[in-house]
Design a protein around this nucleic acid. Structure first.
Length: 523
DNA sequence: ATAGGGTTAG
């Protein structure tokens, strides 16, 4: 056999950078083996990183790792990074942790300061108890002295809302930088302490794009959408360029507000700047246009975009469901499955909502079955809400109650509310009263429920029942309710509506139109 | 050669 031609390190790096598929990488790997270049762990390191980070091929990365007789600390780190980058993170947390334990058990290679942040990310995906144990391990082994590791710990605690622990770590840092500040700010925001987050953000000595993004997301997580847009504009005023993350966060805020105008401004910004139309930006645009009612534009964006992720599909399905285009939502779902995209929990929220809105009882139940039994996705409260609604509509109250009783989570207002609604259409007085009591336990301030029950009884009621309602009303729940509010932007003007108000100048026409719509819906 | 903060869908 002829000896393999020489294959320098430079050749290797050049070829690696041009690999686009796993097949390319395998060829390069093979050539590295033949030329003995693969004997060097730094070569395996490069191949492993490329397989995991650029090609997202975790199994191949792991095979590279396993084929190395005595992996050094670089290979361990690379493998831990691969697990950290894989999604969903929880799925690989245990694998990552097992690698760390193997290092400790064998005593070599000894973990270094680069290993701890990676292990902490895995620990964080599994549970806060593990964050605690890694923390104490870091203290004992002396690695706690590293600011980067303390920042990882800070982030770990803050993700579980443990802001006192996070704060302690922050205060103990030798040097604070924009990263540790940002970790703290987003921790407070996630924990719902948005006021603290804003104060800290304003006190930050230095901010970068990620810091601004953290503050913007912090606002949207707390429902402060107007503030999120405001911070974004402050960011621009202070001379920062938005990136894809900023754009998607702000578009999400615009969607929640129905601010089509500002959404279009952001769209224009993305067009002019070098942000680019990556999947996060496009997903944000689909969501924003869809939520603002411009489904045509949303659909157009979706059709024009080829690099669709799961979120892209979910955004479109959700928007269609939101606007009552149930059949289209289902069609998009089928199309998605035909393309081999695996749906997730969020997909089914949109899909089941579509079935509920469209009154597709059998389809909804079939999809719910598909989700639970075939795809093994654990349903969340939203899914149960849809199913209870569907069964209720069909008058299948026994089934509905069985679903509620079998739920692994506590039923919420949506669940009992949709059951109550169904009881009303099917004249199930007893179950209706039961639901109302449950609703009042959950939210004693909402007088609507009592009014609904009163209406029910008054339609076919007896004196005995009237007394019941009087009693419920006495439980001092009337008059405390905050009115529901919605708004819409038309020609640069925002029109705001409270439930039942007639303050709008065109109020009469609006109610007439609503009546017409209600009538045509009943047909 | 490797590490810490910011994504969007309900």
């Amino acid at each position: 056999m002829l000896p393999a031609p020489p294959f320098s390190h430079g050749d290797f790096v050049a070829v690696l950078s041009r690999c686009a598929t796993l097949a390319h990488l395998k060829q390069l790997h093979g050539r590295s083996v033949v030329t003995a270049r693969a004997a060097s762990q730094s070569t395996t390191f490069q191949l492993l990183r490329f397989a995991s980070l650029r090609l997202s091929c975790l199994p191949y990365a792991r095979r590279l790792f396993d084929s190395t007789p005595h992996p050094n600390v670089f290979l361990y780190s690379a493998m831990l990074s691969a697990y950290a980058a894989a999604s969903p993170a929880q799925a690989y947390g245990h694998d990552a942790l097992a690698l760390f334990l193997r290092m400790l058990r064998r005593g070599r290679p000894a973990p270094n300061q680069f290993v701890y942040p990676l292990v902490l990310r895995a620990a964080c995906a599994i549970g806060v108890q593990l964050v605690r144990s890694i923390h104490s391990h870091a203290c004992k082994s002396g690695f706690h002295a590293y600011d980067v590791i303390r920042t990882s710990l800070l982030d770990g605690y803050s993700r579980y809302g443990m802001m006192l622990d996070a704060r302690k770590l922050f205060d103990g840092l030798t040097e604070r930088n924009v990263i540790s500040w940002t970790a703290l700010v987003s921790g407070y925001a996630r924990a719902g302490k948005i006021g603290d987050a804003i104060v800290l953000f304003d006190r930050m000595p230095e901010r970068d794009v990620a810091a601004w993004n953290a503050m913007i997301t912090g606002c949207t997580q707390n429902g402060l959408f107007v503030e999120a847009v405001g911070i974004c504009s402050r960011m621009v005023d202070e001379g920062f360029q938005l990136n894809g993350t900023t754009v998607s966060c702000v578009l999400s805020a615009c969607g929640h507000l129905g601010m089509l105008k500002i959404g279009k401004v952001v769209h224009g910004y993305a067009w002019r700047s070098c942000v680019g139309f990556g999947s996060s930006v496009v997903n944000g645009l689909i969501d924003m246009y869809g939520k603002c009612g411009n489904l045509k534009e949303a659909r157009w964006m979706f059709d024009e975009f080829s690099d669709r992720s799961l979120t892209t599909w979910n955004s479109l399905i959700n928007c269609l469901a939101l606007h009552g285009h149930s059949k289209s939502a289902i069609a998009v779902f089928d199309e998605m499955r035909d393309e081999g995209i695996e749906p997730d929990v969020v997909t089914f929220v949109g899909l089941l909502n579509a079935c509920t809105h469209g009154g597709f009882v059998d389809e909804g139940l079939t999809y719910f079955k598909l989700m639970c039994d075939e795809l093994r996705i654990e349903p969340e409260i939203e899914h149960y809400g849809c199913i209870v609604d569907l069964l209720g509509r069909a008058g299948r109250f026994e089934d509905a109650m069985n679903v509620i009783n079998d739920m692994k989570v506590q039923p919420d207002e949506v669940i009992w509310g949709s059951l109550l609604n169904a009881c009303r259409t099917h004249r199930q007085l007893e179950l209706a009263e039961f639901s109302v009591r449950k609703l009042l336990q959950l939210n004693p301030n909402n007088a609507n429920y009592v009014v609904m029950l009163a209406n029910l009884y008054s339609e076919g009621g007896s004196w005995e029942e009237v007394t019941k309602i009087r009693k419920l009303m006495k439980e001092d729940i009337m008059g405390k309710k905050l009115p529901g509010c919605s708004w819409i932007e038309v020609d640069r003007k925002t029109h705001r509506f409270y439930s039942g108000d007639d303050a709008h100048p065109e109020s009469e026409d609006i109610y007439d139109t609503l009546d017409e719509l209600a009538a045509s819906m009943e047909m």
